[in-house]
């Protein structure tokens, strides 16, 4: 990362861009600039092109650039608004803003819905939930009988699918998640409340005063 681009940063992200991104998110200008420090680290960890590739996100989350993970794929797809296979800085800010402790719970619920709606049909279907549970069991080297897995899925849908049409709509998911707030635990990153402290290198780089 110690190239000329690093010395230019964060000036390569102009103040107008920082201000616009702050306006579009729950972050202050200083916080957007601090997150640019994190973005730079992630986006040069494998390919130094100022964009986060899936392998770089995987490396940041798992400390390994290779390996399949269903959830990482879905998270990456949701960050990648333009669907061009990379995460740009403004996409990074937009998505992280949902994880801000002060972001509206409706935004968090919506993000989680899109994450679980694997095939993007507008509904969470039993096959998708089964696929996600099976992926975690495999990831964790746990074994569960098909019968027990079916029981768990059936019980979950009995609770969440209030109109009993065999799939969970966004409205049903909203009601269900509000009733079970622990489901949204991963949708809040406490670090984002004080991001300028989390990235002290920012203090020496910033030229912006909030």
């Amino acid at each position: 990362c110690f190239d000329s681009r690093r010395r230019q940063s964060p000036r390569s992200c102009q103040h107008a861009d920082l201000a616009r991104l702050a306006h579009e998110s729950r972050f202050s200008v200083n916080e957007v600039e601090a997150l640019y420090e994190l973005f730079k680290k992630l986006s040069c960890s494998i390919i130094d092109d100022g964009l986060i590739h899936k392998e770089e996100l995987r490396l940041a989350l798992f400390q390994a650039p290779y390996g399949e993970n269903l959830f990482l794929d879905r998270v990456f797809d949701l960050f990648d608004e333009k669907k061009n296979g990379v995460i740009e800085f403004e996409e990074f800010i937009h998505a992280l803003s949902v994880f801000h402790p002060y972001a509206p719970i409706e935004e968090k619920i919506d993000f989680a819905f899109r994450l679980y709606d694997l095939r993007q049909t507008g509904f969470i279907e039993p096959e998708e939930v089964r696929e996600m549970v099976a992926a975690i069991l495999k990831e964790s080297d746990m074994i569960l009988s098909d019968e027990l897995l079916t029981m768990i899925i059936d019980k979950t849908f009995a609770d969440a699918d209030s109109d009993k049409d065999g799939k969970i709509s966004k409205q049903e998911w909203m009601a269900y998640a509000l009733k079970h707030p622990t489901l949204l635990k991963n949708m809040t990153l406490p670090y984002l409340k004080d991001v300028t402290t989390a990235f002290p290198s920012f203090i020496f780089n910033t030229e912006v005063e909030d």
């Binding site: 994190l38 680290k41 992630l42 996100l57 940041a60 989350l61 798992f62 400390q63 993970n69 269903l70 959830f71 990482l72 794929d73 879905r74 998270v75 994880f99 989680a112 994450l115 679980y116 939930v129 996600m132 549970v133 992926a135 975690i136 990831e139 964790s140 768990i152 899925i153 019980k155 979950t156 609770d159 969440a160 269900y176 079970h180 622990t182 489901l183 949204l184 635990k185 991963n186 990153l189 670090y191 989390a198 990235f199």
Partner: peptide, 25 residues
Amino acid sequence: KFFNAFEFISSMSSGFDLSSMFENK
């Protein structure tokens, strides 16, 4: 304990936990 499939997913999925993005920096 894990009779709620979504609770199981949200508590067990490491790919859905972005905090390590901050912890490892």
